[in-house]
Write a protein that binds this DNA or RNA. Structure first.
Lengths: 223, 223
DNA sequence: ACTTCCGTTATTGTATACAATCTGATTCGG
DNA sequence: CCGAATCAGATTGTATACAATAACGGAAGT
């Protein structure tokens, strides 16, 4: 069972570039009211053709970040605290359910190998590694939920959050990485195969993540 | 507040054609094992260019129905009862939450106008109208959840389910439309602004919908 | 002054062309 | 006989070209 199976991976670098650029603008608060953003505009702005811009906009529409209208360009919704909270609310909805499902059927060895990786990272203590572990944990849980659709949805939000993290990381001085305690809580509950405890641990973890994401965005906007 | 705002609408007929064609194949059980489906193949099969095929495949990937690999074509996952159940599980997760949220903040007049529309349809009794009402109800609830992201996700699944409905409707003799009783339950709970009751009614409604969707698929496959 | 109609222009939807890269098989060497 | 290198083909990723259509502004009529 390969973890990379459900990640869209880095097929199409141009599209990723556009998504990232647009997301930067959203986090900065660059767009107000119902600004219009046409495909050609994006193509010029990011130095790519219309095709990847178009695909990026379709993705962003599916995430509820822009509204696409025929022959009218993308209407960018103003982005604020509330929107970030909404994103994490959906993510929480999906991941808490996945955690509940995974807890009852995850293979013992998978959890053990994760705990090992976790302890190793703890001792070395790199922020980057911590995030990589975070991603690995969330992806594993998604896959172990046994619901491929759920895993696909989680993957979509995972790449969104990951991209936002990278943007924030490049601008602020690493405000705060995912808490090790929260991860440990989740791992323990998974090992005990306790769905409710695991779900609660995941919910708490994401609440924290939501708060720090909002803080990071405000940090960016005050500079 | 326009209901059409969050529906991707029928921008791009070719893409819709491809999605529908592929979905037909999946419901029929046409593809076994990890069959490969290249963009050019789809272009030839549906008489369109690669572009809409590509976009369709991206959508289907996001829904966890195919796996896209670079220079390798789309790998189609075999589709069965379990997959349909998974789709409805995710849909239920999203819509039950939306219903809970909507119940506490939906405008009284919106519910009243829906109840009116409902009673009108009841007396005329057309199956098509019934489905249209179903769609309207789900969309209104999604919008009234107050979470744009949640609404976007629901819209994606809504179009998926709607397309499957159309396919089934064209092949079987209208096995069974959405139950009016279930709709009434939801409407009553919404009018009372009772989140828990509304959520439960929605959960039951979707459980029924899931069962009948599975029955419809099996019906198709036995012909 | 207001509304309606019409033509221009802007913008997307779709098709095609080109480039990068992966796959698979075949050949060569051991 | 088996394995590694290599080469042709297939397939996607991206760019560009063309067609359909909706938005926008202005003119004409009332």
């Amino acid at each position: 069972m390969s973890l990379t199976a459900i990640t869209p991976a880095n097929r199409s670098a141009s599209k990723a570039k556009v998504v990232r650029g647009l997301l930067e603008g959203l986090l900065e608060g660059k767009w107000h009211g119902g600004d219009r953003f046409t495909e050609s505009l994006g193509a010029d702005a990011f130095g790519v053709s219309r095709t990847p811009v178009r695909e990026a906009l379709l993705d962003l529409q599916a995430l509820g970040l822009v509204e696409l209208r025929r022959n009218c360009g993308a209407i960018i919704h103003p982005f604020g605290e509330e929107d970030l909270r909404e994103i994490y609310a959906v993510r929480s909805l999906l991941e808490v359910e996945a955690t509940r499902l995974a807890a009852s059927q995850i293979a013992a060895e998978e959890v053990e190998s994760l705990i090992e990786a976790f302890e190793e990272i703890q001792s070395s203590g790199g922020t980057d590694l911590n995030w990589k572990f975070d991603q690995k944990l969330h992806l594993l849980i998604a896959e172990c939920s046994g619901n491929r659709r759920l895993a696909a949805e989680i993957a979509r939000y995972s790449t969104l959050v990951q991209t936002m993290r990278e943007i924030v990381g490049a601008r602020t001085h690493d405000i705060h990485s995912a808490s090790a305690d929260e991860h440990l809580e989740i791992l323990r509950a998974l090992r005990q195969r306790n769905p409710d405890t695991a779900a609660k641990a995941m919910r708490d973890h994401l609440r924290q993540a939501s708060d720090s994401a909002i803080a990071a965005m405000l940090e960016i906007r005050n500079h």
